[in-house]
Design a protein around this nucleic acid. Structure first.
Lengths: 72, 72
DNA sequence: GCTAAAAACGAAGTTATACTTGGTTTTCTA
DNA sequence: TAGAAAACCAAGTATAACTTCGTTTTTAGC
């Protein structure tokens, strides 16, 4: 099984694309760079709690949805 | 509404006590200090992804359960 | 196929904050 | 009422999140 960062990143990417917004737009609205969003989605690193909160707010979803992975 | 760190901390404390384990035991098993666990539960800071994973593993629960807050 | 937008990717440096250490105080519980 | 458990505080360290800059690849529309 992939690690948490990777699972989270894949989940974020899915939820973001479902909302039809680009990494650039998400980055701008969450006060992050597009690189950071890219790194998070690729599982390079996980966001800090403050940014986790911001990202969920931009996507207009509850944080827990970002941790809901298939098969669990 | 309390911020994410605080909500998370309260949720962690509840799940930990329900399992009947002490901060000290959780700290030891997750390679953190008792102070860090205390700080996390009080909402002083949120754990990094690696530690989030470890904590959930020690509690034998899915990570998403730590983000399930009442009323949501 | 061409183009442009979107995203992947890499390296190297900065910075925020998680985490520790050490100690004291308070709360809970047996 | 004693001891365990946890709160609390300050100050220092460590690490991983985050940035910057630049290049390459993928994707989607014309």
């Amino acid at each position: 099984m992939a690690n948490l960062k990777q699972q989270f990143g894949a989940r974020l990417k899915l939820l973001r694309t479902q909302k039809g917004i680009t990494q650039e737009s998400l980055a701008a609205q969450s006060d992050l760079t597009i690189e950071s969003i890219s790194n998070i989605e690729r599982g390079i690193f996980g966001p800090r709690f403050g940014n986790l909160e911001k990202i969920a707010a931009v996507l207009d979803i509850e944080v827990k949805l970002l941790f809901e992975f298939k098969g669990e």
